[in-house]
């Protein structure tokens, strides 16, 4: 169902260069069980994520995943790759619905490496989550850097 990726956490940010990439992670197919389990953990029981008759009556083709389910997996994948102390900023935009049955690929590529006034190096990454049929369901940006 899920591949956590082969990267070992804890590299040095200074070793990253423009074009460095997080090993892609594939997750899927997304099932109703995943969405119900996520709803239970978070406490948000929006019926759009489990009631197919309701969502179809509203013009959707079926149940779709919570945006934060996809964003959360992206966040955890970045943390697993870079190390849990390295995520400084994460911005995500929900571009397309994730439908039941979708298999997703999580990617992040370094756009920029810089050093701030305190001599701390940080890396800015462009993040995407893509479905197998080529839809970009989430786009985003992350900043990695050593924290206190």
């Amino acid at each position: 169902m899920t591949d956590r990726g082969s990267a070992v956490a804890g590299f040095r940010i200074a070793d990253l260069a423009v074009g460095s990439a997080m090993p892609p992670r594939r997750v899927g197919p997304v099932t109703q069980e995943h969405l119900v389990r996520y709803a239970g953990a978070g406490g948000d029981f929006n019926p759009f994520h489990y009631d197919s008759a309701l969502v179809q009556s509203r013009g959707f083709k079926g149940v779709f995943a919570q945006g934060l389910f996809t964003a959360g997996i992206l966040g955890q994948t970045l943390l697993a790759w870079a190390g849990e102390n390295m995520l400084r900023r994460l911005r995500v935009r929900f571009a397309e619905p994730v439908w039941l049955g979708d298999t997703l690929t999580f990617c992040a590529v370094v756009d920029r490496v810089s050093t701030d006034d305190n001599a701390l190096t940080q890396a800015d990454l462009r993040c995407t989550v893509t479905s197998e049929d080529g839809r970009q369901v989430l786009t985003g940006a992350a900043t990695l850097g050593a924290s206190r």
Binding site: T2, R4, V27, H34, A41, G72, L79, A80
Partner: peptide
Amino acid sequence: GKCREFALALLDSDPAS
């Protein structure tokens, strides 16, 4: 426990996280 529940819901298979 809530962090762990979320980790499992987000398909984090690392039992140490």
